[in-house]
Amino acid sequence: MFSDKNPPFEHPDLLRFHRDMLTPSPVKYDVDLLQKRNNNAYHDMSTDLLESTGLDRVIAEVDVLLFAYNFPNIRPDISIVNYLMDRYQSRFISFAVNDLGFGAPFAALHMLQHYLSREDCSKGMLLIMDQTALPYETPELGAAPGPDTAAVIFMDRTTGAGPCLLGVEMKHADQSIADTAALVLERLCGEASVHRSQIALLVHPGLEQLCNQTLWYEECGWKGSYDPMLWSAAPFFALQELLEEKDGREYVCLMHLEQTDRFIHALLIRTGE
């Protein structure tokens, strides 16, 4: 998490960019909001995260790097992936995924899984970030936006060590959310030839409330939920904590609910335990 406050980036061209971008819209431009928030730019958050986790030492070996976020960057003048390529002298395939709400990381993982199935791609990385310094009000942030957040996932299919991505599912709940969640889990388990009883299920608390009386939910080997207040990185913070427990769980299913649009996002991993 990035809770330290930085002064707003004072640059006339950037302030004019934000003002001009909002002029044709009903959104009110309010630069004073930047004074109240943390003002962490994604290129700085990326390097701090990589260097604090030690992943800066392997990024030069990465074949494909994806960047997922919900809130836009306070520094639209800097391309994060190009900045990282230059800083770490890397030559990875890279692009960003956004405009999908807090489901953006799951869409990015779906793409990452596709790339890692190719013979010329064996190492992948996903950066998940959200900063809350915006010069306009948004319903998600409200009065107390909290800290900026970031998480990172690194996968290497050549060594077989550590987490291995087995599947990603994204499905709209046309009718019952609980039934849709059951279908999503059934698809993931079927593709990996895994039974529900072998799975540690980590879910959004809203999904837990809707599903905790169902048979399929009860059949899962372990159940838990996470705090969704840390933006799009929230599920992945909880996943990392679960993986660090080292208690012998072989399979983990992470399932996220976007309540507004009734979308369920899920991934299944083998932990390497």
Rank of each mutant, 00 (worst) to 15 (best):
I128A: 13
Q131V: 05
Q131S: 12
T132N: 14
A133N: 08
L134R: 07
Y136H: 13
E137A: 07
E137V: 10
E137R: 15
T138D: 10
P139M: 03
E140T: 08
E140L: 15
L141C: 07
L141T: 02
L141E: 06
G142L: 12
P145I: 08
G146E: 09
D148Q: 06
A150Y: 09
A150D: 06
A150K: 05
V152A: 14
M155G: 05
D156I: 04
D156N: 12
T158W: 00
T158H: 08
P163K: 07
P163E: 04
C164F: 06
L165I: 14
L165P: 11
L166A: 00
G167M: 01
G167C: 07
V168P: 07
E169P: 02
K171C: 10
K171W: 00
K171Y: 00
H172G: 05
H172I: 13
A173K: 04
D174W: 00
D174P: 00
Q175W: 02
I177S: 03
D179R: 11
D179T: 04
T180A: 01
T180M: 01
A181S: 14
A181E: 09
A182W: 00
A182P: 03
L183I: 03
L183N: 10
V184P: 13
V184L: 01
L185N: 01
L185C: 12
E186P: 04
E186K: 03
R187I: 01
L188G: 13
E191L: 02
A192F: 00
A192Q: 10
A192M: 04
S197C: 00
Q198H: 06
I199V: 14
I199F: 09
A200E: 09
L201M: 10
L202Q: 04
L202M: 08
V203A: 05
L207N: 01
L210V: 11
L210K: 10
C211R: 05
C211P: 10
C211W: 10
C211L: 09
N212Y: 06
Q213W: 03
T214K: 07
T214D: 07
L215C: 09
L215A: 06
Y217N: 04
E218V: 09
E218A: 04
E219M: 13
C220F: 03
C220S: 04
G221Q: 01
W222C: 04
K223R: 14
G224H: 11
S225R: 08
S225Q: 07
Y226K: 12
M229K: 14
S232E: 11
Q240M: 02
E241S: 11
E241M: 09
L242W: 08
L242E: 15
E244L: 09
E244P: 03
E245I: 00
D247I: 12
D247L: 13
G248R: 10
R249G: 07
R249Y: 04
E250D: 14
E250W: 02
V252I: 15
V252R: 04
L254T: 15
L254S: 05
M255P: 07
M255Y: 08
Q259C: 08
Q259N: 02
D261L: 11
D261N: 15
R262M: 06
I264R: 06
H265D: 05
A266D: 12
A266K: 03
A266G: 15
